[in-house]
Design a protein around this nucleic acid. Structure first.
Length: 515
RNA sequence: GGCGCCGUGGCCAAGUGGACUAAGGCAGUGGAUUGCAAAUCCACCAUUCGUGGGUUCGAAUCCCACCGGCGCCUCCA
């Protein structure tokens, strides 16, 4: 089966065929760095990070770019509000963004170009557009003329006339068509400005993506991603200006991820919001809620104080990328509960084999996937079948939710094998080898999702004293059990449970862990 | 008003014309195991996919209507 992707441009699932058969260029619209990232900002990066991992796994040479928009009206306003400079604010927020990406395990991005490093590239494009009649200067601004673009609106499927009927676009300014959008904006005093043929100013919102994607990935992108909210006007405008500039198709496959939604019962993660004052403030508060507040996280950082990042990543991937994700604390907690079964399998594997799951060397390409041709045949055949289904799910428009289902199936298969072979008590080299093969496959597949790539750090790492004490207690309880003094043994176990310590009696020895 | 999305078991969720007599998770029930537990395994848990029509040999999947939820249409990822 070949990879198929849903293309927003055609509204259909299509066979994936990049411009160059072996290479994939993908561009994801990054953030305007004017405020701390909230959970919604992580959806795209996590999904496209996973998409890149899968493409690389499938044998493609992938270049993945996320832009940083570090000049924009929102930045200017926010910086003024905070009494800082645009540069400082942008730098701070960019660092915040990078930190969050790293925490979420998004590490496949090849380049983060900055808008302010590409002003000349933007000016070049704008000049071309002015020259070929697709844009016109007006009092120091430069506007893109939507009427000069015959297929303007093809991505979001709207036409200019209907948009006018919407009445929400201001029709009072001097633009030729109210839908014309700014490529270049004349700067006011004390605003960041760059020289241009039309006087000092700054780029409009959309041009930076056109310029940077063209420079770093070429005139035709294979994949262009972003949140569904960006489809119009941002992507529509990018598309229009790029194609009018180069005369070539801008993007082969437009992939849009669904947006975070506030569950009615959510909102416990983020902080509360002040809701007093006049109407304007109320409106602002609503706007803030829409993006961050009751939607979940005041910031990603805050979210990570409550939930492990791996849980959050897994949570995001459990739903198909195009669907809206119903975000709530309870949902994530449930995800966390489900993950424990994965971690227990890893512990069990380490206990019976002496090897850490995290140290297993898994293949990073489909072509070199783990060899399942040997013995035991039945076990390997089931592994191979789950692997096939996992691949099929991922090839079907990156169905991570379905793929995760097969990972769960694989857990049961592996646990079943451990139980059936009695590996906790009777270790045979052949059986452990077979298990290791299975675990290696598991790692190979979970790596694609970017989960379980490294051990999760234990909270409040245990000092030696706690370990020694626990060993003593367990030894005492073992004696009691040997003497069949169940009351004492149970009293110890129950007492420890009350301290959030769980004992697990196994054939060889009793182990303990924090609950 | 325009463009578009969604509605699958108690909850989350995959599946979008035939292998669906609908994955998987959480919760729950019964059994195996255990001194009893925990963990693990096995079994059960939607004759049904918002409602009503229609197309088709065949529909959760396509069409129409309706009900319900939501997004965008002003520089939100």
């Amino acid at each position: 089966m070949a990879l198929r992707v849903y293309n927003t441009l055609t509204r259909e699932k299509e066979d994936f065929k990049p411009v160059n058969p072996d290479k994939v260029n993908m561009y994801l619209c990054g953030p305007t760095v004017y405020k701390p990232a909230h959970i919604g900002h992580m959806v795209g990066p996590v999904i496209f990070d996973t998409i890149k991992r899968f493409l690389v796994y499938s044998g493609y040479d992938v270049k993945f770019v996320i832009n940083i928009t570090d000049i924009d009206d929102k930045l200017i306003n926010k910086a003024n509000e905070l009494g800082t400079t645009v540069e400082k604010l942008a730098k701070e927020m960019t660092e915040d963004y990078f930190e969050n990406l790293a925490t979420m395990g998004v590490d496949s991005v090849d380049l983060f170009p900055y808008a302010t490093d590409h002003i000349q590239d933007m000016l070049d494009m704008i000049s071309t557009l002015v020259k070929n009649g697709h844009a016109y200067p007006l009092d120091g601004d430069v506007y893109f003329a939507v009427e000069e673009d015959d297929d303007y609106g093809k991505l979001s499927r709207r036409n200019i006339d209907e948009m006018m009927a919407g009445t929400r676009i201001e029709t009072s300014d001097k633009k030729r068509n109210p839908a014309d959008f700014a490529l270049w904006k004349k700067s006011k005093p004390n605003e960041p400005a760059w020289d241009s043929p039309w006087g000092p100013g700054r780029p409009g919102w959309h041009i930076e993506c056109s310029a940077m994607s063209k420079k770093h990935l070429g005139e035709t992108l294979d994949i262009h991603g972003g949140g569904l909210d960006l489809m119009f006007p941002h992507h529509e405008n990018e598309l229009a200006q790029s194609e009018c500039c180069t005369g070539k198709p801008f993007t082969r496959y437009w992939l849009h991820n669904g947006l975070m939604q506030a569950g009615s019962s959510s909102g416990k993660v983020g902080g509360g919001h002040d809701r007093h004052g006049d109407l304007t403030e109320q409106k602002e508060a609503q706007e803030a809620d829409k993006l961050s507040g009751s939607k979940g996280a005041a910031s990603v950082k805050h979210l990570f104080e409550v939930h492990h990042p791996e849980t959050v990543r897994f949570f995001l991937l459990a739903t198909h990328y195009r669907s809206p994700i119903d975000f709530s604390d309870e949902r994530i907690q449930e995800t966390g509960k489900g993950l424990e079964r994965f971690y227990r399998l890893f512990e069990t594997y380490e206990r019976v084999s002496g090897n850490s799951f995290y140290d297993l060397k898994a293949s990073t390409t489909k072509a070199n996937s783990v060899d399942l041709s040997g013995e035991p045949k039945a076990f390997f055949a089931e592994l191979a079948q789950l692997r096939d289904r996992f691949w099929e799910a991922m090839e079907d428009d990156f169905n991570t939710g379905g793929a995760i289902g097969f990972l769960h199936d694989m857990i049961r298969l592996l646990n079943g094998f451990i139980a059936e072979q009695k590996l906790e008590s009777e270790k045979t080299a052949a059986a452990i080898d077979a298990l290791t093969t299975g675990m290696t496959l598991f790692k190979e597949l979970s790596n694609i999702l970017g989960v379980f790539t490294k051990p999760i750090e234990e909270e409040g790492a245990d000092d030696g004293l706690a370990n020694d004490l626990m060993e003593l207690i367990i030894a005492l309880r073992a004696n009691a059990r040997k003497e069949k003094q169940w009351a004492i043994a149970d009293q110890i176990r129950d007492g420890l449970n009350a301290l959030n310590i769980v004992l697990e009696d196994r054939p060889e020895k009793t182990s303990w862990k924090r609950g």
